[in-house]
Design a protein around this nucleic acid. Structure first.
Length: 738
DNA sequence: CTTTATGGTTTTTTT
DNA sequence: AACCATAAAG
């Protein structure tokens, strides 16, 4: 172990070997915080003789957990499978799997994601006779989630008369929780709340876990919310080691309930705690780091620190000024080419970051046109694709027969002639008897007003589900998924209901899913861990996009700034630095939110090791109209001595002071009148060539309608004909050929 | 009763 | 482009 300590600097070493019961490590970006945390765990095991099964380590992503586990295994050459390491959500899910019965849940409970939650809420609203046209289920979803994150129960919410939605909220909330229980389901927030409830009501169990986890370590502490904080307070008794690591300047999840005060007040919460500051940055060149430091210095809510680096000055930060989002994408491609040729970089070294997922499309198109291979994190996730969700719904109802949300999703998919009305009748019948919807299907013959033919179709479906419920413990999860998918007719549906192009893509996704299930079960088996279907579904529900990032492929990475947290790249592009977009419009009014946007940029900038590019566009297509954009105020907060401007045309390089003045003036105008200015710029003509991001090159063969409602018929390569609505299709005109 | 066609709406970030 | 709600068709 002593040899290992050589890899650490003085402060890191002190933090790793501190004997204090409570430790706060304030670790700036790139200061080796994950390293410190990993080494502390190694030190606890090898020097303090704490067994891995007595250590609980919380990371922000599953990927981080996996990496830390691997590093540990290499460091101390011990078996790490007994170590409890994962995200708050996955650790809580694991606890709940074991203790579910104490809260009246079955062990096979389903985890509802936002989509499931909204479906559940719709059902609850109709039970309460609340019209969905007037109140959106999504609004209730976010309000309930917020309440749960703040540890509020329905009764804690005041029925304020001011807003109608808030008056209805407690009732909807209560009904929703009841619904989840009936369905043996928990939403994301419940995963954190239920263990708290469990520990508060069951001192014996709390004691059990307190003696299990002798040492608790938490990464990214600045992004913990109230519920997570409460859980830590419960578990981290006085004689338990608690070590938290974080950076208040990188707190970017306020909107999700994260409370920056958790880290700001740690020393008050745990008087006598040791505080260590890791202030040497090993990642970024000096220009980048100083630029980022200057930016974040504009925030009030921070403990303040002096992050420095011994690395070289490096190249200045490059600011790319562009005309519009397409121009922005083209300039970025140009810069990528430069980097590739002049510095012999590979695609792997490059990340392009943006504020909103919607910005990725144009970037993707340009990259594709230029044969630059890329991967995209987030946006439409693999497990959220329709065909995958449908198969998962089948698997969910097989592991949790109470789950009516999943059942409703697939009862008529593929189409088998069982419509809403029939389901409604059976549901009513089931509710009156207090049985589950699935059981109700079995008794469909007892329901009046359902015809014999219909009842037979329902029974046929019921039998197929029962058949696989019986099979579930006899054959492997992968085998079950694949035979089921064919058996219920999904494969056939995918083959026949889509054109060739789409059908192939979707079938490929389905096979990828089967492979994933197989890999998962085999890996879990070899580690001697739970490899049931339920555990696979849990893993899927809690997976983040970043978790599937495969760094071995040579590709440019595209993702949101939020997803980029914790990563680093030699070259980073941050796009769309415009008022209203970054900082995002609705966030700039509230000073606290503006500070969070600033931290988000800080996080983005500090991902870069050697080269950092910032870009903005003068006009941008947003919400279906072209808007005039004003450069982000954040650009003025980075001192110009760190910046080199790469202007678009005519070398319009005014002195920076005049530029600033102009920008301020424009900003004022912007705040006064909001933003608008539309241009209609859809000019396609019959015979012109266009490019589409999924279908490729094609030729316009017909036009219908005018202006916003114009429809374009395009014949794509491979004789695929598509009729597209011009304003949404996002077609790129190619050179016109006569 | 179910299926299909149509039109309107939507986009902030995510466990 | 995907999703929903609604209306008309089968």
């Amino acid at each position: 172990m002593s040899t290992i300590l050589k890899d650490l600097n003085e402060v890191q070493k002190e933090a790793v070997t501190s004997e204090n019961k409570q430790i706060l490590i304030l670790a700036g970006a790139g200061s080796g915080k994950t390293r410190t945390l990993t080494y502390r765990i190694a030190w606890l095991i090898s020097n303090k003789k704490i067994k891995p099964e007595h250590i609980l380590a919380v990371t922000f992503t599953n990927k981080a957990a996996r990496e830390m586990k691997d590093r540990l295994a290499a460091l101390i050459k011990g078996k790490m499978s007994a170590l409890w390491i994962g995200t708050f959500h996955s650790i809580c899910a694991r606890i709940m799997r074991m203790e579910a019965k104490h809260l009246g849940y079955d062990q096979g409970f389903t985890i509802y994601d936002v989509d499931d939650q909204v479906r559940a809420l719709k059902k609850c609203m109709s039970r309460l006779n609340i019209p969905q046209q007037m109140y959106s289920p999504k609004l209730f979803q976010s309000k309930i989630s917020r309440a749960k994150n703040n540890l509020q129960k329905p009764a804690d919410l005041v029925k304020e008369m001011a807003v109608e939605v808030d008056r209805l909220l407690p009732d909807v909330f209560e009904e929703y929780d009841r619904f989840l229980k009936e369905n043996n389901a928990m939403d994301f927030d419940d995963l954190l709340l239920k263990p708290i409830e469990l520990f508060q009501n069951n001192p014996k169990l709390l004691k059990k876990y307190r003696s299990k986890f002798k040492s608790i370590l938490i990464d990214e502490y600045q992004d913990t919310n109230r519920a997570q904080y409460e859980l830590i307070k419960l578990l981290a008794d006085k004689d338990i080691d608690l070590c938290v690591v974080g950076d208040e300047d990188q707190s970017i999840y306020r909107w999700r309930g994260a409370d920056i005060n958790n880290i700001l007040n740690f020393s008050k919460d745990f008087p006598g705690a040791d505080v260590f500051r890791l202030e040497e940055n090993y990642r970024s060149n000096n220009n980048i780091l100083e630029g980022a430091n200057a930016l974040v210095a504009n925030n009030q809510q921070r403990l303040g620190k002096n992050l420095f680096t011994k690395r070289p000055e490096g190249d200045p930060i490059v600011l790319i000024e562009t005309e519009n989002e397409r121009d922005e994408a083209k300039k970025i491609v140009e810069c990528i080419h430069n980097e590739m040729f002049s510095k012999k970089r590979s695609f792997n070294d490059i990340a392009i970051l943006y504020r909103t997922n919607a910005q990725s499309r144009v970037l993707e198109e340009e990259l594709r046109k230029n044969a630059i291979s890329y991967r995209i994190i987030g946006g439409q996730k693999f497990y959220e694709r329709k065909e995958i969700r449908d198969i998962l719904a089948y698997l969910k109802i097989i592991t949790n027969p109470q789950d009516s949300v999943s059942l409703r999703r697939i009862i008529n998919f593929p189409l088998r002639g069982i419509g809403d009305t029939t389901v409604g009748k059976i549901e009513k019948y089931a509710e009156s008897l207090g049985i589950t919807l699935l059981e109700g299907l079995g008794h469909v013959k007892d329901v009046d007003s359902i015809s014999e033919g219909m009842a037979n179709r329902v029974l046929e479906f019921h039998q197929i589900i029962q058949k696989y419920r019986k099979l579930r413990n006899k054959i492997s999860a992968a085998e079950l998924a694949s035979t089921l998918t064919t058996d219920v007719g999904i494969i056939n549906h995918l083959k026949t209901e889509y054109d060739q192009y789409e059908s192939e893509a979707r079938l490929q996704n389905v096979h990828e899913l089967f492979n994933t299930i197989e890999d998962f079960t085999k890996e879990r088996e070899s580690e001697g861990l739970d490899n049931s279907l339920a555990s696979f579904l849990e893993e899927v529900s809690l997976q983040t996009d970043i978790d599937s990032l495969d760094e071995t492929k040579n590709q440019v990475t595209l993702m949101t700034l939020h997803s980029a947290k914790g990563l680093e790249f030699p070259i980073v592009f941050i796009t769309g630095l415009e008022m209203g977009l970054f900082p995002l419009q609705r966030n700039s009014a509230d000073p606290a939110e503006l500070e969070e946007e600033r931290r988000l940029l800080y996080v983005g900038m500090t991902r870069a090791q050697e080269n950092l590019y910032l870009s903005y566009a003068r006009t941008r297509r947003r919400f279906n109209s072209v808007m005039t954009m004003v450069p982000s105020l954040f650009l003025d907060e980075i001192p110009s001595k760190y910046i080199e401007i790469k202007s678009t045309e005519s070398g319009r390089k005014s002195a920076s002071t005049t530029r600033k003045q102009a920008r301020r003036k424009k900003m004022l105008e912007y705040f006064k009148q909001g933003q608008e200015s539309q241009e209609s710029e859809l000019d396609y003509s019959i015979g012109s060539l266009v490019y589409h991001s999924t279908f490729g090159k094609g030729k316009v063969v017909n036009l219908e309608g005018q202006g916003e409602r114009m429809k374009v018929s395009v014949l794509f390569e491979g004789n695929i004909m598509k009729k597209l609505i011009a304003q949404y299709a996002n077609l790129t005109p190619l050179e016109v050929v006569d």
